[in-house]
């Protein structure tokens, strides 16, 4: 009886798991697919490690849920009032209590070690080859390239009415940010107004952009392609309408693009680097 029960529970769970895990390759890189039940495929070493870590987490999560469910199903069948008219009076079992304190603790340590390794790996890169500065605005992004002459440009959403065929709604911008693949890129993020958050799921990058400070992270994009993200901190009425579109190209193509961009964006003003204010500057007129 119990075996059948376990089967009824485990088979669909395993099927769903394999569906989710297996279908990663089927999806195009860079953005979500309809009815997606899993992460977007990893496009950076950081995201690869996140996915690996998540596999560990998911196995533990599902095991715990299935375990609890199985015990509950057994209880429901074995200890309902009809099946068990006389309740026991057991209220203690020291061994059991030690086990169910110690085993979870052990599982947590198994989680914590790779977790902290991942955290430190994702934090900063030691040997960046270039820097991209990102400034959040209501409601668009501004990108500047301090290592390539300091040019900058705004990246604004293309409204639905002006989309060309094949361009994804709410993800298309006029000027995507172009970056070289297989390059260690330092990201410096700040904001010109409220808090925004620059995120690209396929990269495993997500970091707040806060006025008055510069937050740093890094990315190394494995392969050329188009990668999308969305602002990830509520920033006002058009929070849903300031997407991120990264175009990763080869190093050679990137150099060509830089030359062109310098000309195209020559007259775009670089946003003032977020200044750490002189405290006690004269009060802002209200």
């Amino acid at each position: 009886m119990l075996r059948i029960l376990k089967l009824i529970v485990l088979v669909p769970v395993l099927a769903a798991l394999s569906l989710m895990l297996g279908t990663g390759d089927v999806f195009a890189a860079g953005r979500a697919e309809p009815w997606q039940m899993w992460f977007q495929p990893a496009a950076t070493p950081v995201m690869e490690r996140i996915l690996e870590f998540h596999n560990l987490l998911l196995i533990i999560e599902v095991s715990i849920v299935v375990f609890v469910l199985a015990i509950m199903c057994y209880i429901i069948f074995r200890f309902n009032a009809k099946s068990n008219p006389v309740p026991s009076k057991t209220t203690h079992n020291t061994l059991l209590e030690v086990i169910w304190t110690g085993v979870p603790l052990f599982i947590l340590i198994i989680i914590a070690i790779p977790s902290l390794k991942l955290l430190y790996y994702a934090d900063k890169v030691q040997d960046a080859e270039m820097t991209l500065k990102v400034t959040g605005n209501q409601w668009y992004w501004n990108y500047s390239y301090p290592d390539h002459g300091g040019f900058a440009f705004d990246s604004i959403i293309v409204p639905n009415a002006e989309l060309k065929k094949g361009q994804p709604r709410l993800l298309t911008v006029d000027n995507p940010v172009v970056l070289p693949a297989r390059t260690n890129i330092r990201l410096l993020l700040t904001s010109a107004d409220v808090i925004h958050n620059w995120a690209v799921p396929a990269f495993g990058v997500k970091l707040d952009t806060v006025g008055g400070r510069i937050n740093e992270t890094w990315v190394n994009i494995n392969k050329e392609g188009d990668y999308y993200g969305m602002c990830s901190e509520l920033c006002g009425v058009n929070h849903a309408f300031m997407p991120i579109h990264v175009k990763a190209v080869s190093k050679a193509d990137f150099a060509i693009w830089v030359k062109k961009a310098k000309k195209d964006f020559a007259d775009v003003e670089v946003p003032a680097a977020a200044k750490l204010a002189q405290a006690d500057a004269p009060a802002v007129a209200r």
Binding site: F39, V46, M47, R49, I50, F53, H54, L57, I60, E61, I64, V65, V68, L69, M72, L108, I111, S115, L116, L118, L119, Y121, A122, N197, A199, P201, G204, V205, K206, S232, E233
Partner: peptide, 24 residues
């Protein structure tokens, strides 16, 4: 049962590295 389900996703979120993917 449902608190356990919600709780295990909480364990996932507790990890700052994982939270990069999940935050917001």
């Amino acid at each position: 049962f449902l608190f356990v389900m919600g709780g295990v996703t909480g364990v996932a979120l507790a990890n700052a590295g994982m939270d990069i993917a999940f935050h917001d």
